[in-house]
């Protein structure tokens, strides 16, 4: 079920209402922040959990979760194969997989281009990876913080579709309307 401490975990059921996750995924490159308490856990790709998950360590979900996830002072990562049908709360949240539910990141939420999200995001700091396309609501309040394809940019309000640094010239056609 979990990467490390397998011996200690063997007597535990693979699916539980509120699994006490004690293992680590120290080899994983993410997440890394001061929120880490030194231990982390992984919910493997074949694991399905129905119920509420809470804890005092970071968690990587590669399996399926239905219920709620609450890691108020730690980091949560929903891996590429992770499918979460739950409201999730954590200090820092990274979504690479699928989440159906509201996402509350106390400090930060990172949404990658591989993610599929159906729900609202509430966080003081939000990052949408380049290439990601998000549908839903993002509620951003920076004051609560603790701590692809080619892109063309253009000047808005100027009659040009040329790339950056193209400035509007006085002679360009401007249409004044009502």
């Amino acid at each position: 079920m979990f990467d490390r401490n397998k011996d200690r975990q063997q007597d535990k059921p693979e699916t539980s209402a509120a699994p006490a996750v004690e293992s680590t995924y120290s080899n994983s490159p993410r997440p890394t922040s001061s929120a880490s308490s030194g231990t982390s856990a992984t919910l493997g790709a074949t694991i399905k959990v129905k119920g509420d998950i809470s804890g005092d360590e970071n968690l990587l979900i590669e399996g399926e979760v239905e219920g709620t996830v609450n890691l108020a002072s730690h980091e949560l990562t929903v891996g590429k194969s992770g499918k979460v049908h739950a409201d999730v709360t954590a200090k820092v949240i990274r979504i690479d997989g699928e989440v159906h539910g509201d996402i509350t990141g106390k400090e930060k939420v990172f949404v990658s281009s591989t993610s599929i999200i159906k729900g609202n995001i509430i966080t003081p700091k939000m990052t949408l990876e380049e290439g990601a396309r998000f549908k839903g609501t993002i509620d951003i309040d920076p004051s609560h913080a603790n701590g692809g394809s080619p892109v063309t940019s253009f000047k808005s309000g100027s009659p040009t579709d040329k790339p950056d640094n193209t400035t509007s010239k006085p002679g360009n056609p401007t249409v004044k309307t009502s």
Partner: peptide
């Protein structure tokens, strides 16, 4: 939602509906 829009509005109190 594309990352530029989120980044642009992300430094102020706002609610973005995409």
């Amino acid at each position: 939602g594309v990352h530029e829009t989120v980044e642009h509005f992300g430094n102020r109190r706002c609610k973005l509906h995409f």
